[in-house]
Structures are given as structure tokens and as C-alpha cells.
Design a protein around this nucleic acid. Sequence first.
DNA 1: CAGCAGCTGTAACTTAGGTTAACTGGAAAA
DNA 2: TTTTCCAGTTAACCTAAGTTACAGCTGCTG
Lengths: 239, 239
Amino acid sequence: MITAHLRKLRRRIEISSEEERAIRGLVSETRRHRPDEMIVRAGEELNNSLLLVDGWLARCKDLPGGERQVTELHVAGDFADLHGFTLKRLDHDVMTMSECTIAVVPHERLLELTGKHPRLGRVYWFATNIDAAIHREWALSLGQRSALSRMAHLFCELYVRLEVVGQASRGRYEFPLTQRELSECLGLTVVHANRTIQELRRRSLIELENRQLTILDRRGLEGVAQFDPTYLYLGKHVL
Amino acid sequence: MITAHLRKLRRRIEISSEEERAIRGLVSETRRHRPDEMIVRAGEELNNSLLLVDGWLARCKDLPGGERQVTELHVAGDFADLHGFTLKRLDHDVMTMSECTIAVVPHERLLELTGKHPRLGRVYWFATNIDAAIHREWALSLGQRSALSRMAHLFCELYVRLEVVGQASRGRYEFPLTQRELSECLGLTVVHANRTIQELRRRSLIELENRQLTILDRRGLEGVAQFDPTYLYLGKHVL
DNA sequence: CAGCAGCTGTAACTTAGGTTAACTGGAAAA
DNA sequence: TTTTCCAGTTAACCTAAGTTACAGCTGCTG
């Protein structure tokens, strides 16, 4: 059920089998959701955090005028709102971008876990800090990279993150977002997002059809993205 | 020495006097820095976190071409790199924006503190999660707000954060950044940042001279910023 | 199986913000 | 003093991205 999550953790730190057992005990129930559902609303009080087992989620922030910015995308193995454990209510919505399977983790269990295993407390603290590092990289993209470079960067980031959980290989992964949703990640209009996809296609860097993304030239794509995965903290880490 | 920090914490959560004593014991030494110094370099191994006692710091991310994005500004009472406690190395530089007084907190002491006081562990986890919430609000600004609204938003955010630590009142605070540095926060060129300041002045929303920012019309400024401080989590919080 | 809704693709035109470059004025060197 | 330097300012011009509008396609659903 939560193998992707453990795989993601183990890509960064050691987890003993006892710790693994404790982590597996976090989940109280699992749920299914249809695409385009809002599963956490900004401001509502939280008693659970949601561990994404399968599918894609987005953290969305909206302006009164309706403009939307996605601040992070989540894939299998990610906690979508682990920060809700300390924040108690979120400053953004969480929406499904595809069919999703979600494991519910009650905050009491997290409290108990981090009490019994202080190291796992630091591990999950670390996990929210990686989310923050991703936010910073997105801010760099939004503030300084061109539309083309920004989109290329997002495709590179997702490739790496999906590969960790075995959902990307041989330059391919399923990319369930519509162009509108993609444009909301990148701070572009749909029309310009479309032009930008065309340009990446024209340069033979990617293919994108039927929700399947194929990276034709990884080097080339990483080049236009100026992609450096250090910010994902993938090396082995001691906590 | 770290009164601003305690004031900031207490604005959000209860801190007992015993906890206060433990927190005061974190600091090993304090240092002074001149403006425009790099005090933490991206990637270097960290054994300390830095608590800003006085002055302004910025978290900077640079592109190979030299473009810089500031991902967060820090003022008195903030930990500049508390996330370094779990990340061990940063994905960004930390630079002084003014003369600064900085208290050094060794990671061993943080480890000891969070071991003895698990609640304070959650408090500091909470603190890094607020930084992430600020990152998200900046991403929303960078992706969706106009230059004018974005700059207004930054001025509003800083007013609230400085007021908490007693460094802003009656619509005024010291703003030590140059227009170049300000432009790097906002993802604008210096020239356009300048035009944008002019426009805020023309609308009688702010004055800015000799590194002093005066907000002439708080309502008006918050209006163009569409500022809602919820993301700063200022209410009382239980952990 | 008609009709609608949502996603994708294009084109024509507009605009916010970028670029380059030049000028000002004050403060620190010299 | 004079010189240098840098933050701030302004202007002229340019371009990446936004806007509006429409057409084609797919997949529902009634």
C-alpha cells in the first residue's frame, strides 16, 4: 500500500524494519477519489494528513479574481499535507489531478510515532523541508526562467521524482494534467503553455500525447531547463 | 539577545518559562556581519543554524547566467536556516542585506533540545512550515500578481512580520534593501522595480526614502496587494 | 446518435515588463 | 577640492507573454 512512500524515504535515509513497521501503522484507512476533486480546503481544521498512494495531487492557491497558482505537484509516495500536522490548517487547497488512492494518517498516530521514534520525527521534518526546497526552486523558475525553460524544468523534476517511485523509466511517464493545469503550475496562460509545448516538440525534446510524456532528449531538456537536481536531496543522508 | 525570537514564537504558541530557559540555552555565540556578505553558501555542510538577532538577511538562488531570485527575506527573530538542521546543506545562499547581529545555534544543541522537549521540536518544525507557507505566497505573487500588486504585497508582509517583533509601527519601518535587491525578490528588472515604486508613490500608497518605508495608506496598499495575512499563521496555536 | 462540454490548437492583436543606455546626485576616496 | 562610484531615475525601443476569438476533436450523456 505505502511501498512507494517507503521507497522514497529509503532513497534518502536508512529505515530499519522496526521503523518500517511503525510507519506502516500510521495509516487508518485508504480512500479513492475521482479527478478534479478538492480533497482539502484552505483553512479547514485538519486531524489527518494524506499520503498519496497512487495518482497526482496539486496544491492550489487562488486569488480573489480566480487566478490560480499551483505551488507543488504530488505523486505516489508523497505526503500531500504533512505540514498540516503542525500547521493544523492549510494556506492552500489540495486537488486531485487524476484518479487517486489516498491513505489517511491521523495526526494522533503521527504524534505517537514521533514520540516513540524521535528520529522518524526528524525524518518527516526533513520531508517537509524538501517540499520547501521544491517551493524555492519553483520560485526561481517563476521569477527568473523563461516559459520554455520553466516548463522543461518541471518535466525534468517530475521525471526524477517519478523515477524514484518506479513510475518513470526509459524517458517516459504518465502526465495526467491538462494544459490548463500545467499552465497554472508555470504561471502562464493556457495559450502560451500550448505554444511552449509546441516549441519543446519542435525542438524534438519531448512528445506529449494522450497524457503520456516522452522525453526524447534528456540532456537537451535538462540543458534548456538548466536543471540541477541537488535541491531534491536525493543522496544518502544521516539524521 | 533573542527576545525578538521569543516574541515571534509567543505570538503563535505558548512558551513556558522552563521552555524559554531551554531556548535561551541554544545560542553558543553571537557574531556581527557587514552588509552584502555571504554567510552561508549553498551546498556547504552545516553544523549550526543562524538566528537573526538584528538586521536583514536574504535567501538567494542563482542561475548559471547570473540571474538571482531571493526566495525569502529574514528579519530580527527569524531563524535563517533552521531547515539546515535536517537538510544538512542548503539549496540556496544566505546573504546579509544590512549590518546584522547573528546568534549561532549548534545543531547538537537543537538535537538535545528537541529530545528533552518534544513539543519544542514540533514548534520549530512548525516554524519551518511557516517559511514554506511564505514561499507559497511568494510563488502565488510571482506567478499571478502584477508587478504593482507583488511589490505592494511584499511591503504588507514585511510590515506585519516586523510589527510582531516591534520593528514597525505607525506605518513605518526601516527597509535596507537597494532597488536591485528588491527587484530580485520580485522577479523584476531594476528598471521596472523602479517604475513600480514610482507608481506606488504616485498613488500615495507609500513613501520610500533613505531606506525608510512609510505606508501612507495601509488599506489602499493591502487592496492593490490583495493581502490576506492568514498564511503567516499569527493566531494562537496549540501544538 | 445528436448535441454538448472540455481539451487542444491557431491566428491576430495588445501589453506588461525587459533592454539598453544615458543622466543625476550624494557620499566616499584620494 | 576633484574624482570615482553607485543607487536611483528616466527615456526609447523591443519582445515575451497575455488576450480574444474561433475551429477541430474527443468523449460523454440524454
